[in-house]
Design a protein around this nucleic acid. Structure first.
Length: 569
DNA sequence: GAGATCACGCACG
DNA sequence: CACGTACGTGATCAGA
């Protein structure tokens, strides 16, 4: 949480065995204790380091440079010259490792047990070295020396694995962009969220009353266990699906029953209301930074197996949009002052990536002609012209397109479309006959995963898939779907990151700020007078991320809030 | 019994 | 809840 992190000190290592620490924290608790002279209590004014930290020529190696950018920026220092970030290197080398803690990486690559290193063979984590003030300096110096030693090792590995381009041109410079986005934050309308919360409290109470009446007793609706008892034991409804511990009460299951049982549709309604209230309406106002009046998410650069970013504390990548109630939350994300929000999103980026990979004639032609891809898919599958495609046909084609991206190796597709597995199988065979390039791709990528043990994106990002050799069918199938999906999702993520860097540079000289990234969308804030310029630059940067076999289309919208936006030509 | 952890459910792309 | 995430709630758990 870099926005809340405080700068305590700086540690430097210029040669092996020569790490030092300078305390720059000027908070009260730092006075010396027993009165004994201790250099560790000596504080250095941060200003002494400003020129060095801001020098492009003074090259630095860091672990988690994003935190460095953010923490120093808040103290008026624009960190420059970051030439290596061991955390980002470790992420590109293996995106699936659980931890990117410097102590863990040092243990694995240097066989070095840093102070505070927690072995995984039992025992409570030693609270001593991590927390105590005396252990702090030793620990930080040891970490700093580890960075120094790790740099050449990780650098060599990046080059060996063909990850150096992505590293030096994308991940490393992106850290700074993400730090700025986190520091900028996004404005929210607290009053609106509080008003919504109040309304929801009343609606939830009324819904609960109706549910208890139908159930004949009061119970905790939020407890899956108690809900199972009421629905499937007391009321005797037929259970459709099981979980490990009992009968499923998931939305998918309940929706099947909702038409027949009023209590079930009330429960679904209750779930939506409580979800919106607890996850958004009540949670978001608590996360407004009192100093900026805005919400500052963390944009995590080393969290996903595919190369996407993730967002946490709070997650601003899952703000509701699909239901009317959900959009009330989204409406509370606003532009500050006279500004407006501008949203630029890639149109169908994953299917465009699929078109690029497969070079499939039907897919490429549809995108070259800027056709509606789901309608175009329906035309091909059902062998008809666009005007003959009914909404139902388009819906089915859309489902199939999703299934392809997710790696439809095993077919839950039938259930999804409400048809038999046999019929679903026919659909898939039909699809693969009409899109032979896609069939070839899925077969080849799974074979590649088996041979190499990993798959890669267009830019060489890797994901290891050890489960591809599992003897357990379900486990192996999961790995096969991941083998199909990861290059697609991961390449889209690469393109977006490249696009972000281009747009970031293009926006210099405007008053626009990049606020958020939501996988295929970038959100900006700017004065109304700059909307057209920003739209143009977003199109240029995102659309020009990389030359592909099909064009990258970017749609731009603008408005006073994140829910009500009008298209910008 | 506070706090960690798991299961479940569900918000988004 | 197909692929990828984050997170809120409820349930469960241990050792002195």
């Amino acid at each position: 949480k870099p926005i809340r992190a405080k700068l305590h000190g700086l540690s430097f290592c210029v040669a092996e065995g020569q790490a030092s620490y300078a305390r720059v924290d000027d908070s009260a608790e730092c006075g010396s204790k027993q009165g004994a002279l201790d250099l560790r209590d000596y504080r250095v004014p941060l200003a002494e380091f400003k020129a060095f930290l801001e020098s492009e020529n003074a090259k630095k190696y860091c672990h988690d440079s994003k935190v460095g950018y953010a923490v120093l920026a808040r103290r008026g220092i624009a960190l420059k010259g970051v030439e290596f970030d061991t955390m980002l290197a470790a992420y590109l080398i293996d995106s699936t490792r659980g931890s990117y803690d410097i102590a863990d990486i040092a243990f694995e690559r240097l066989s070095l047990e840093l102070p505070g290193f927690v072995t995984n063979n039992g025992g409570a984590p030693a609270a001593d070295a991590r927390q105590s003030a005396s252990g702090h300096i030793e620990r930080v110096c040891a970490e700093c020396e580890a960075i120094y030693k790790l740099k050449p090792i990780l650098d060599t590995k990046l080059k060996e694995d063909g990850l150096d381009w992505l590293y030096y041109n994308v991940e490393l410079p992106l850290a700074r962009v993400l730090a700025e986005m986190e520091l900028t934050g996004v404005a929210v309308d607290v009053e609106q969220l509080e008003a919504l919360s109040t309304t929801l409290t009343v609606d939830i109470k009324e819904t609960e009353r109706r549910i208890y009446e139908m159930a004949g007793e009061e119970f905790n609706i939020g407890s899956p266990k108690q809900l199972q008892r009421i629905l499937f034991e007391k009321l005797g409804l037929t259970a459709a699906k099981k979980t490990k511990t009992g009968f499923s009460t998931s939305a998918a299951v309940l929706e099947e029953m909702a038409a027949d049982y009023p209590i079930v549709s009330e429960i679904l309604n209750w779930r939506e209301l409580t979800k919106i209230k607890s996850t958004y309406a009540d949670a978001l106002p608590k996360l407004i930074n009192p100093e900026t009046g805005r919400i500052h998410t963390s944009l995590n650069q080393t969290a996903t197996a595919t190369g996407r970013l993730s967002s946490s504390d709070p997650n601003l990548q899952n703000i509701p949009i699909r239901t009317e109630l959900g959009r009330q939350i989204r409406k509370a994300f606003i532009a500050s002052g006279d500004n407006v929000l501008v949203s630029a999103d890639y149109s169908q980026i994953e299917l465009r990536v699929l078109a690029h990979f497969t070079n499939d004639e039907n897919l490429v032609r549809a995108f070259e002609n800027d056709e509606d891809i789901h309608t175009a898919t329906a035309c091909v599958i059902f062998n008809c012209s666009p005007e003959d495609v009914t909404p139902e046909m388009r819906r089915r084609a859309k489902t199939i397109n999703f299934a392809v991206i997710y790696g439809m190796a095993d077919f839950t597709l039938g259930r999804e479309l409400g048809i038999s597995t046999h019929e679903a199988r026919d659909y898939i065979n039909m699809y693969f006959t009409k899109f032979p390039g896609v069939k070839k791709y899925t077969e080849e990528i799974v074979e590649t995963a088996r041979e190499l043990g990993f798959v890669t994106t267009m830019f060489g990002r890797r994901r290891y898939l050890p489960d591809i050799h599992s003897t357990k069918h379900a486990v192996r199938m999961f790995a096969e779907r991941a083998a199909i999906n990861t290059p697609i999702q991961g390449t889209a993520a690469d393109l977006m990151k490249i696009g972000m860097l281009k747009v970031y540079d293009l926006l210099k000289g405007t008053n626009a700020k990049m606020l958020l990234q939501v996988h295929d969308e970038l959100l900006f804030e700017c004065p109304p007078s700059e909307v057209n310029r920003v739209a143009e630059l977003a199109r240029e940067g995102m659309g020009g991320a990389h030359q592909m076999r099909v064009p990258l289309k970017v749609d731009v919208k603008a408005g006073k809030n994140w829910a009500e936006m009008e298209s910008v030509a």
